[in-house]
């Protein structure tokens, strides 16, 4: 049976349409898959919620359900989108946007059904979401000799996680500088300091602890600490020879009795 001319045209048009749709779909598919990783933004460091197990274990444990996000009373936690710096769907927060308020009962940890947030964390002061680092030594107002102190004041562990250390202000010669110093053994990485920093771009930032804190070679021993541990010198019977110091430098060129200076050649 032969179809009428109209039938044939319809079939051809449909066939052509189908091929077109396919081509568009195929191209769109490739474009989409390429677009997701390309769609990235630089900027802040995405921190994990309190109690998060180490990053390698985290991706084995977190099912990206967002129950921690739901139970965060301050809307601190978010689920990552492509480009936020964490795998899509995993919980994170940007300290500069909304820092962790360090809830006493840690509802995010309680909500986690899988153990990606470790229920062993019951005291929020023990949390280690990251470590604050004063990165802006040239912009921090306290480094410039002012008394901003905001990061220090807002720190939930004031005088423990951040202290102010007094230094001489060499620029003025007569003032003091109060330098905020983070103590990495106490800092929870809550990010309140970063949030509160008055600069346009925070001078103090919370970084993943691994990035923030250096690590000594495993074979390093600090002599003074070892000595303290031993309660005595590590090597007995060392003869302490007198220290030989260099001669004191002469002040200025030598003056000649007849006026003028020695070795002065005009």
């Amino acid at each position: 049976m032969v179809g009428t001319r109209d039938d044939k045209d319809t079939v051809n048009r449909r066939g052509f349409l189908a091929v077109g749709v396919r081509a568009v779909c195929g191209a769109g598919l490739v474009a989409l898959l390429a677009a997701v990783p390309a769609h990235r933004r630089a900027g802040a460091v995405a921190l994990r919620p309190p109690g998060a197990v180490g990053e390698a274990d985290f991706l084995a444990a977190c099912v990206r359900c967002g129950l921690c996000v739901r139970d965060c009373p301050y809307d601190t936690l978010k689920l990552a989108e492509a480009g936020d710096g964490q795998p899509v769907g995993t919980p994170y927060f940007f300290a500069r946007d909304i820092p962790c308020e360090m809830c006493e009962h840690i509802p995010c940890v309680v909500a986690c059904p899988t153990g990606a947030l470790d229920k062993g964390l019951t005291d929020i002061v023990e949390a280690r979401m990251g470590t604050a680092v004063l990165v802006g030594h040239e912009t921090c107002l306290n480094y410039l000799g002012l008394r901003c102190d905001v990061c220090y004041r807002v720190c939930p562990l004031i005088d423990h996680a951040i202290t102010l250390e007094r230094l001489h202000n060499e620029r003025t010669g007569k003032h003091a500088m109060f330098i905020p110093v983070v103590h990495t053994d106490k800092c929870t990485g809550c990010g309140k300091c970063e949030k509160a920093c008055v600069l346009d771009e925070a001078a103090i930032k919370v970084l993943p602890t691994q990035l923030a804190v250096g690590e000594l070679g495993k074979h390093y021993r600090l002599g003074w600490k070892e000595k303290e541990k031993e309660g005595k010198g590590l090597i007995e019977g060392i003869i302490d020879l007198p220290d030989r110091m260099p001669d004191p430098p002469s002040i200025g060129p030598e003056r000649l009795p007849g006026g003028g200076f020695k070795e002065f050649k005009p």
């Binding site: 986690c112 059904p113 899988t114 229920k119």
Partner: peptide, 15 residues
Amino acid sequence: SLLAGHVMETTALIG
């Protein structure tokens, strides 16, 4: 998760 080396907490396992 189990194969990746993590044993989920009881809540998730009940689920």
